[in-house]
Design a binder for these strands. Structure first.
Lengths: 229, 229
DNA sequence: TCAAAAGTGTTATGGTTACACCCATGA
DNA sequence: TCATGGGTGTAACCATAACACTTTTGA
């Protein structure tokens, strides 16, 4: 290592804000800290970046190690670097956010080392470090991005009903939408494939199932199309 | 420093993509490297983060040290952390982008240590490290943000004409706009204050001067208004 | 008086909003 | 047969897009 570089360096970490959706709520996965500082408080899953891995790799690895999630939408969010954000040391953290499908894969709520649990966004516990701030930035990003990019599908099962899709938007954006207008708008885009299947196990008229046509979206986007709700 | 932290740490840097606008072009300030690696190539202004300063402070400091710019719109862009992005060492860089007003303040094009110069976006030289990639991400962010946030004014003089404003959008977004529709749209927002002054020194009918009403924008935004071109 | 850019209004089109009832299904 | 959510069309309104000529000014 060259002597041209600072002898005392910050430590670099990654933290992940993992969002999931159930029938009622947008949720975030948190992990209970077993050691000081902030012992007993809840924190975002995360850990230190190794010298032989990229930031994306580190985020993916930590996500899997701490929550068991192997496949998820994962995107860099923002880098937090206030001088005293960690009482132990100068730690800069590159925050990521992830969207996971809670409908099909049961995400394990406990890891070997520590407790993990899902919390509704509206009902969060006290968080360690500046993780409340990171979470707020992640939520804003999610809300903003949901409007003009088709990322909501990451939170739904592969096959979903139009009502599920609408409810997703209503929950995350925290506003009611008109059913007829929502359907007209989303179907007009021609990005949903009607699977000619119905949902099962409901005690009322079964809804049609759709899936998102990602290939077609990529083509349209390439030609200047922009998704917008 | 606790022994709990990795002994070998990455180095953390900040790099700034500084955008300016003149009558014809969107420009970026680059600095010619005087030392290896990439000696003689052009690079983004930047440097290492000190242990006693935040990332924002580091970006602001480097911007001033390397380009003389004291006041500018400065926002974090993205953090680049590929393992081998710097041949000397594992260096993670937190990239920022800045918007400066080239019309009123002459930004010095040379620093003590090295050559600095403005390059039109369409005519860039070979860049050091992964700085071409950083620059492309910055350009995309600028183009995206310009559409739905009033950041373009940072690139114009305090007092500007509607044609200057329209030309800014045309240059940065790389598309022609209709003069009458542009004026109707922007004036309808009630965010421009007509200064009842005219431009001077032009050999044709002098245009009215306006300034951006930032206070009013903040109020409107608070009430849910969203700027959009 | 010429050249150059400033400034201005109308119409057609398409998208958005608001709104209420019948249908299918399982219990 | 009842309760529950699924599924559907129309009309009013508003925003956007297309488009060309007159005005002002300095050279």
């Amino acid at each position: 290592m060259s002597k041209a570089f600072a002898q005392y360096k910050p430590t670099v970490a990654v933290d992940c804000v993992v969002f999931g959706l159930d029938r009622q709520d947008l949720k975030v996965m948190l992990i209970k800290r077993g050691v000081a500082p902030f012992k007993g408080d809840w924190a975002l899953p995360g850990g230190f970046v190794q010298l032989n891995e990229s930031l994306d790799q580190a985020a993916k690895r930590e996500l899997e190690e701490e929550t068991g999630i192997k496949q998820a939408f994962l995107e860099q969010l923002y880098t937090f670097g206030a001088v005293n954000r960690d009482p132990r040391d100068r730690i800069i953290t590159v925050a990521y956010y992830a969207l996971v499908n809670l409908w099909e894969h049961q995400i394990r709520a406990t890891t070997d080392a520590s407790d993990a649990a899902w919390f509704a966004i509206a009902n969060l516990p006290k968080l360690a470090f500046d993780h409340d701030q990171i979470l707020q930035v992640a939520l804003q990003r999610l809300q903003g991005k949901l409007r003009y990019q088709p990322i909501g599908f990451e939170l739904l099962p592969q096959k979903f009903t139009l009502t599920q899709l609408q409810t997703l938007y209503e929950i995350v954006l925290d506003q009611k939408l008109d059913k007829r207008n929502f359907r007209k708008k989303i179907l007009k885009m021609n990005l949903l494939i009607d699977l000619n299947e119905r949902e099962t196990g409901v005690s009322h008229r079964a809804a049609r199932l759709y899936r998102f046509d990602k290939k077609r979206y990529e083509q349209l986007r390439y030609r200047g199309f922009s998704f917008e709700i």
